[in-house]
Nucleic acid binder design. Structure first.
Length: 555
RNA sequence: GCGCCAGUAGCUCAGCAGGAUAGAGCAACAGCCUUCUAAGCUGUGGGUCAGGGGUUCGAAUCCCUUCUGGCGUGCCA
């Protein structure tokens, strides 16, 4: 990041002195082909037209001005009009110095300028244990949160509990059935629409132990109400615990039920009514969503007089606005994309700035074990829960795997691979790089010279191509983080960590780091390797994966 | 039918908001341990970027279109 910025600035300075006007869309990038230097820019190509010059000529003019610049060892013009830069050793060395000086705070910044960002994610229905899609959402949202915090945004994590409506009634009924079963009643087959999972029986038996005698004599309505409250509370605690084990905490838990009680729903409805965007048809109240680019109008109040899920959700979203967020991110499951258009329509009708909303859809997760796809059925209660997954493969592997794919892609989760302790498993591979460095640093303590006091002038001993490449990779870190935050794509971070780890493993293999006969080189390499370790460690922290100093081998 | 997302190596996926010869891992094959962890490293083969048009100096990337897959399209949430 820093080097790119330096190059940008230099180019702009040069252009100014040459009185060339520059198209600001020009880029500075790391070319794929190493023959094209360390960095390259297309300034001349994109600015040729407005200067009425050929790209090549323009490039030559600019390059001439770079002749005596200490930061670059060579600056050349190539084919259609690219300018290629090779970085000088001084500039490289300054990167390591910066990383070492910043320590565990490296790349931390105020880039986000305190922009208030709400990230709503997981928001699973409180009708059962968290499943794998929730786990993916948890890893995703939390990583986004961590990176944004690191970069000086002011993000906040929120969990919306749909603890009202039909499904919750069914939950209560399901438990009530099981409850009666425990008391010896013959209930026959559970109805299709009921929840079938083991946990329903557990909840029933728990409420029997705690409240059994009391609810036994209640009338059915009271009893269902009691069971509902009990179950919702239990399940919320269950969710919190699962998430907490996964390293995810939420700043706020918002209950749909409590939103329904505030009167905000009535406000929303009366506002829509006054705005004359509602009408009555078939005994229901409809919202003219088509007026605001939705495909069809939507029901607000059902014929039975009860609001649809839509209404409290609008109300909920207005609270997000009222809480003053600059950006409101909803992380949603794959089955919700038909829904957002109507939500946006409603927000427009209520005069909220819908451009603040951002929707991210995480695609589904398929679990594989030994090459076999694990079949799940929510209806039959046959699902692999988040807890089971974490028990099976561990938090580190689970978080890494979930993040390691861009959100819109389906994710095939290979449980066998996640458990492997070899280079095939990317989590292991990266953690091992970190551990390896730690073990080198440990060994370095036995060297017959001081390795604690850092003498940065020694860094000029780094002169191998592999070392420059590593440094170049290190300085990309800052930019990667910014990309993660801005594009909402955490997978770029795991990608980066894999690459950096790979480069280190190779370096380790090809070069001896500890050598007491070449003190300066040894020290310089130790500094380099320390810088790598720092970045790995920061990266792991940001994705919520541990940075082990030793790998303990399991048999 | 309509809408959203996807289609890149045998498999799993990247490709940085248009850049130079499309990359990585796995799998396959061939190698590397008296050495700081071989829990690792190196090499080889492998592609009509789903197809077809267009935009321009330049397209996997942007636009149009066709095909294929997933999901959505309830007075469910």
């Amino acid at each position: 990041m820093k080097i790119k910025k330096i190059i940008r600035n230099e180019i702009e300075k040069v252009a100014k002195s040459l009185k060339i006007s520059i198209n600001p869309v020009f880029s500075v990038e790391i070319p794929k082909n190493v023959d094209h230097g360390d960095f390259s820019s297309n300034v001349a190509l994109v600015s040729a037209k407005e200067n009425k010059q050929k790209p090549m000529d323009l490039a030559e003019l600019i390059v001439a001005k770079f002749k005596r610049n200490k930061n670059f060892s060579t600056v050349t013009v190539a084919k259609p009009g690219f300018i290629n830069f090779t970085i000088s050793r001084t500039l490289y060395v300054s990167v390591i110095k910066e990383i070492l000086q910043a320590g565990e705070e490296y790349a931390k910044s105020d880039y986000g300028q305190g922009s208030k960002i709400l990230i709503e994610f997981v928001s699973a229905n409180p009708t059962g244990p968290l499943n794998i899609v929730s786990a993916r959402a948890a890893a995703y949202g939390d990583t986004l949160y961590r990176v944004m915090s690191y970069l000086g945004y002011a993000p906040s994590r929120e969990f919306y509990m749909n603890d009202a409506g039909n499904q919750v009634e069914i939950l209560a009924e399901s438990i009530e059935l099981r409850f009666r079963e425990i008391l010896g009643e013959r209930i026959g087959e559970m109805p299709d629409e009921a929840y079938h999972g083991e946990y329903i029986i557990e909840l029933a038996s728990r409420i029997n132990t705690i409240e059994g005698s009391r609810i036994l004599h209640m009338n059915e309505i009271e009893r269902l109400e009691k069971i509902k409250d009990f179950a919702l509370n239990e399940i919320r605690i269950m969710h919190e615990e699962s998430l907490s084990r996964f390293g995810v905490e939420f700043e706020s838990w918002i209950s749909e039920n409590s939103i329904r009680k505030t009167g905000i729903i009535e406000e929303v409805l009366s506002y829509l009514y006054e705005a004359k965007v509602t009408y009555e048809k078939d005994e229901a109240i409809w919202f003219m969503a088509t007026k605001f680019d939705d495909e069809k109008d939507r029901v607000l109040l059902k014929a039975d007089g009860l609001p649809t899920y839509f209404v409290p959700d609008i109300a909920y979203h207005t609270t997000k606005y009222d809480r003053g967020y600059n950006v409101i991110i909803d992380v949603l499951g794959p089955d919700h994309h038909g829904y957002i258009q109507r939500l946006i329509a409603a927000l427009k009708a209520l005069n909220y700035d819908e451009t603040k909303m951002e929707f991210i859809f995480l695609q589904q997760v398929n679990l594989f074990n030994e090459g076999e796809k694990i079949k799940m059925s929510k209806r039959l209660g046959k699902i692999v829960t988040m807890d089971e997954l974490v028990d099976e493969v561990g938090k580190d592997a689970a978080r890494f795997f979930f993040i390691d794919r861009k959100p819109a892609s389906h994710l095939n989760f290979d449980m066998e691979l996640a458990k492997k302790q070899s280079s095939e498993n990317p989590v292991f591979y990266c953690q091992y790089a970190h551990a390896r460095i730690c073990s080198i640093l440990e060994k370095a303590k036995a060297l017959p010279f001081d390795t604690i006091e850092i003498d940065y002038s020694i860094l000029k001993k780094l002169n191998k191509q592999d070392e420059f490449q590593l440094i170049k990779k290190l300085q990309e870190f800052e930019e990667i983080l910014i990309n993660v935050a801005e594009q909402r794509e955490p997978h770029r971070l795991t990608d980066y960590l894999k690459e950096l780890s790979g480069m280190f493993h190779k370096y380790y293999h090809d070069f001896n780091i500890l050598n007491k006969r070449t003190k300066d080189t040894t020290l310089a390499r130790l500094y380099l390797v320390t810088a790598i370790r720092n970045i790995l460690k920061i990266g792991f922290e940001l994705i919520g994966v541990s940075a082990p100093e030793k790998m303990s081998k399991k048999e």
